[in-house]
Nucleic acid binder design. Structure first.
Length: 412
DNA sequence: TCTGGGGTCCTAGGACCC
DNA sequence: TCTGGGGTCCTAGGACCC
């Protein structure tokens, strides 16, 4: 029988912070005290990203505001996130996985699936050895779930934490999975949960006992999917060699303060264009659809998009399109967030010039590439557009920092 | 000191073509 | 003047995940 493992780092960001600090001579282990990784409230990024187990005992939850967390636990130690460090830790763990099996799917920065082919494998031993190896070589703990498909392996890895190994084979479903609250099921989120409650469905077992046709009637294809999940039915394969994104790439940011002038919005859009276009070019893709996302100070979010005649990876084309999209979409209210997303991706070779492309097209692409090379070699701050001088807006906004460079560094 | 950022997939309506 | 159906593409919004 083919086996699937799901490996999940316990309190990932916080564990990695703790390990890094210990390695750099810090005597304090963040995992042993009430602590959290969180953003900066001054720039309106103040939410809890990860918490220690002692912090959890105070009722602190991921996603809540730092303000709320500090009310629950005034002596909570909060440290800022360092995404570059987390990418390194994730990479190191991934390299260990590949020594165990070539069939590894990275599901997120701290979760992976692994397929173990063949029969007669001592999977408990294999799992325990993997846990031990990660703990001894990398200094942090993981949960491992084992089953005959990815869904059940993922459900198993969530059972009890930390540093635990669980199985959830089909015959164990009634005993181990059906008693759990329905919101513990993968793909039952905060919108589906109340709908199910209204139907009298409170546990995963209740969901499994509900007629499939009834759920399809009420919840369409989503209902069908979660009914199958409740029965442990899932058969997707390991998806290998996936980049972090394959359908689209985006960057967005909550603004340090509300803005209500297009001129201010344009500066952020330029910074977002630079980072998203750089990522697109590093991934060697072109995009045909450009989308802007706006969020008002009242948290009302909306999007506007345009499909281009020919796909592009050029920063100026993306930026000019975004300005135009902004002017069409903006409802005149003050804005809290601006985001950019590029989809409709294609391969850039050979570049398809249209009849109307100007000769400057070639030189613009060459310029973009030279700037990319400089940023990769000397860091993202080595070169920036003049409009950002003496401004507080960053010339590259969003996740194009150490993390993406690290992802790409194996190519360079 | 209110509420992050980066993804995927699905649905529904309208345009457009045959 | 009115009446069709199917297929594809585009757009906007919403649900879910980490």
């Amino acid at each position: 029988m083919t086996l699937y493992f799901h490996i999940d780092v316990n309190s990932a960001y916080l564990s990695w912070e703790a390990v890094s600090r210990l390695q750099h001579g810090d005597a304090l282990d963040l995992r042993l005290i009430p602590s959290a990784v969180g953003g900066d409230p001054k720039s309106r990024h103040g939410i809890i990203l990860a918490k220690s187990i002692p912090a959890k005992k105070y009722g602190i939850t991921t996603g809540e505001t730092l303000h709320e967390a500090l009310e629950k636990c005034p002596h909570l130690l909060v440290v800022p996130p360092r995404y570059g460090l987390y990418m390194q830790a994730s990479e190191a763990m991934h390299r260990i996985f590949l020594e165990v099996s070539p069939y590894v799917q990275r599901f997120s920065i701290d979760e992976s699936f692994m397929m173990i082919p063949g029969s007669g494998v001592d999977y408990l031993r294999l799992g325990e050895d993997l846990k031990t190896r990660i703990r001894e070589e990398l200094g942090f703990t993981v949960n491992i779930g084992i089953s005959s498909n990815k869904l059940l392996a993922k459900m198993a890895s969530d059972f009890s934490k930390p540093d635990a190994l669980h199985t959830l084979f089909p015959e164990e479903i009634p005993q181990k999975m059906w008693p759990l609250p329905v919101e513990d099921l993968f793909m039952v989120g905060r919108a589906t949960r109340p709908k199910l409650k209204a139907l009298g469905i409170h546990t995963i077992g209740d969901l499994a006992a509900t007629p499939r046709s009834y759920l399809v009637h009420r919840l369409k294809s989503h209902g069908e999917m979660i009914w199958e999940f409740a029965h442990g039915l899932e058969s997707s394969k390991i998806r290998m060699d996936q980049s972090a994104w394959s359908k689209g790439v985006g960057n967005g940011t909550t603004l340090p303060r509300d803005i209500d002038k297009p001129r201010d919005a344009f500066l952020y859009l330029l910074g977002l264009s630079e980072s998203v276009a750089l990522r697109l070019r590093l991934g060697q893709k072109l995009a045909r659809v450009i989308m802007i996302r706006l969020k008002s100070s009242e948290f009302k979010s909306y999007t506007h998009q345009r499909t281009l005649l020919s796909p592009t990876d050029e920063t100026p084309v993306i930026y000019e399109t975004l300005k135009s999209l902004f002017m069409e979409a903006w409802r005149g209210e003050s804005l809290r967030y601006l985001g950019v997303r590029l989809t409709g991706l294609s391969e850039p070779t050979p570049y398809q010039y249209t009849l109307f492309d100007s000769p400057e097209k070639e030189s613009q692409r060459a310029l973009d590439r030279q700037i990319d090379a400089l940023r990769l070699r000397y860091g993202k701050n080595v070169i920036q557009r003049g409009v950002f001088l003496h401004k507080r807006v960053k010339p590259l906004i969003g996740g194009v920092g150490e993390e993406d460079y690290l992802m790409m560094s194996s190519l360079l």
